[in-house]
Design a protein around this nucleic acid. Structure first.
Lengths: 139, 139
DNA sequence: CTATCCTACAACCAAATGGTTGTAGATCAG
DNA sequence: CTGATCTACAACCATTTGGTTGTAGGATAG
């Protein structure tokens, strides 16, 4: 029951690409727009004060992050939202939320027990007491 | 009723910093860890195969994104999670979700009406019909 | 007091990012 | 066929990012 909150199974690279894709206002705007309607790449490019090639790159970033997909239609390339990517990002943040709440619960438990020094499984290991505390375990 | 889903009122810069902060596996790990327990900066540094200064920079990125905060305790600097930042990120993705669902609803409506060409408020404007479609409006 | 530990910060470097212009291939209109 | 449009991609540039090492200052242990 301890591994359940990380069910999403996204690789580090996928998450890097996902959040990196969101870390730009133009790209967030593109995502919002193609969520509402359909745009060609040039249709999107007309919306922003930058070159066509720049918007093309933004779309490419979103595509690598699985947040949008393109579909050729005649001579245009239609960009549409990929809802799965969005949901995966949400799920990760939800996982953090779950961890946060578990922590709150655990603190409540500790306060309830108040003094029952169950050895070997306390919340220790967090505070860096001093030397030789678990190295490189988490990378 | 159209502005309600963007109640979060986060500036573009804040959102940039927020998502940029999540766009690195080491930083995500730091957030996860300090959500569970308390770590000093050097305690965190001992966990990763990189220099103390590098971890220090990661923590600084998280701090500028309002995802963690530091508190001086003796000669150590304790890093702890800032739940608000996390919640703000979640809320933005939730907003996208709301927009997505509204779009689904609207498509359903259109399919229901099937043919009732209510002028001036159809879903057009999205497809880039051809020339002179709303430029620079969104930036 | 002295040595050690934790932190902060500057300087530097390679690679990635976000933008540009230019060139070239497809597709559509006439 | 010809011209206009939409796209893709290469090359280039400035800035940011993610890492390093080195120096210096404040807090603690002995």
């Amino acid at each position: 029951m301890v591994v359940d909150q990380l069910r999403t199974q996204l690789s580090d690279d996928e998450l890097d690409r996902l959040f990196q894709a969101f870390a730009d206002a133009t790209r967030r705007d593109i995502v919002r727009r193609v969520t509402v309607g359909e745009y060609s790449v040039s249709g999107l490019a007309a919306l922003y004060a930058m070159s066509f090639a720049a918007v093309q790159k933004h779309v490419a970033v979103l595509e690598r992050a699985s947040l949008v997909s393109k579909e050729k239609r005649g001579r245009e390339q239609i960009v549409r939202a990929n809802h799965d990517g969005l949901q995966r990002a949400r799920r990760l943040l939800d996982d953090y939320e779950v961890i946060w709440r578990q922590r709150a619960d655990r603190i409540a438990d500790l306060l309830a027990e108040s003094a029952a020094p169950e050895p070997g499984e306390t919340q220790a290991g967090a505070r860096t007491t001093n030397k030789s505390q678990g190295q490189a375990e988490g990378n």
